[in-house]
């Protein structure tokens, strides 16, 4: 049994524009995540990758299909059972500042999961745990009294990570956790996430649009295109011998920072309103 098992997940959203076609964000997605591993979901805008990240945490309801955590079907849980289950499954968002309540101190933000899930703890114990986890994510204890707006983007994201791991989850969705950060900060956060995974045995679902990042962090990669997973493979295999033409296109769009490695972009189906080289194979 895998830690997380998603089967035939389907989700359709009503169109935002009146009279527009409904958007099929997920079209029968199945995947497994094993304990302690990182599965990356890579895709471009409109691929449904963020919807998938929220659906596996039941932050939105699926139209069809099931999500099982430790063999427990999340859809079968009552609201209070689901809330209790949330200690085990957490999320880190793309926008570090927006994901922190601007009116709460860093200490209160990180303490909140403990207040919810470990009701037996006294104020002093919570305080001790909060300082511990802040230090674990590389923040000095004194930031506990600060407000989110007083920290840098990188520090804010460390707080987001601290809040996600303080309740000792087994599984964390990372929704583009480094996309809005500067390059050098990005590397630090990725290192921190890898360290936490090694120390705490976390499993990650790493949602990203960036091949460079995904290559660095993931054990396996699932490529999403228009609501479907078109290819899943171990990271090394996917980069060495991408099978699906869309994966090949994504890889060809990477721009290497080494000017000696010239890229040659190969278009895939693409935007029909824009001229591009013809697709090599019809989409799956």
């Amino acid at each position: 049994m895998s830690l997380l098992e998603v089967e035939n997940a389907c989700k359709t959203f009503a169109s935002r524009q009146r009279g527009g076609d409904p958007v099929q964000a997920l079209r029968g997605v199945s995947l497994q995540v094993e304990a302690g591993e990182t599965l990356a979901i890579i895709g471009e805008s409109g691929s449904g990758k963020s919807t998938l990240g929220r659906a596996v945490l039941r932050l939105l309801e699926l139209d069809e299909g099931s999500v099982r955590m430790d063999g427990v079907d999340l859809a079968g849980l009552s609201p209070s059972e689901l809330r209790a289950k949330r200690a085990e499954m957490q999320i880190v968002f793309q926008e570090p500042y927006e994901s922190l309540n601007p009116r709460m101190s860093i200490g209160s933000i990180v303490a909140e999961p403990l207040q919810i899930h470990r009701k037996g703890l006294g104020a002093a114990q919570i305080r001790k745990l909060v300082i511990e986890v802040l230090e674990r994510v590389g923040l000095p204890a004194k930031v506990a009294t600060r407000l989110p707006g007083e920290l840098s983007g990188g520090q804010q994201q460390r707080v987001g990570v601290a809040r996600a791991v303080v309740s000792e989850p087994k599984f964390v969705v990372l929704d583009e956790p480094t996309s809005s950060l500067d390059l050098s900060i990005r590397a630090q956060i990725l290192e921190l996430l890898a360290q936490l995974q090694a120390d705490l045995g976390l499993a990650y679902l790493f949602v990203s649009h960036d091949m460079h990042t995904v290559e660095k962090v993931s054990d396996r990669i699932a490529v999403m295109y228009l609501g479907e997973i078109v290819e899943t493979a171990p990271t090394v295999d996917l980069f060495r011998s991408p099978q699906h033409p869309y994966t090949q296109t994504l890889l060809s769009a990477r721009l290497s920072a080494d000017p000696r490695e010239k890229h040659a972009y190969r278009a895939y189906e693409g935007d029909a309103s824009v001229r591009a080289t013809p697709p090599q194979q019809a989409p799956a």
Binding site: Q115, A123, I126, R127, V130
Partner: peptide, 9 residues
């Protein structure tokens, strides 16, 4: 019960 009260500096 929060470990530190919010204070704006």
């Amino acid at each position: 019960e929060s470990p530190a009260p919010a204070r704006r500096r």
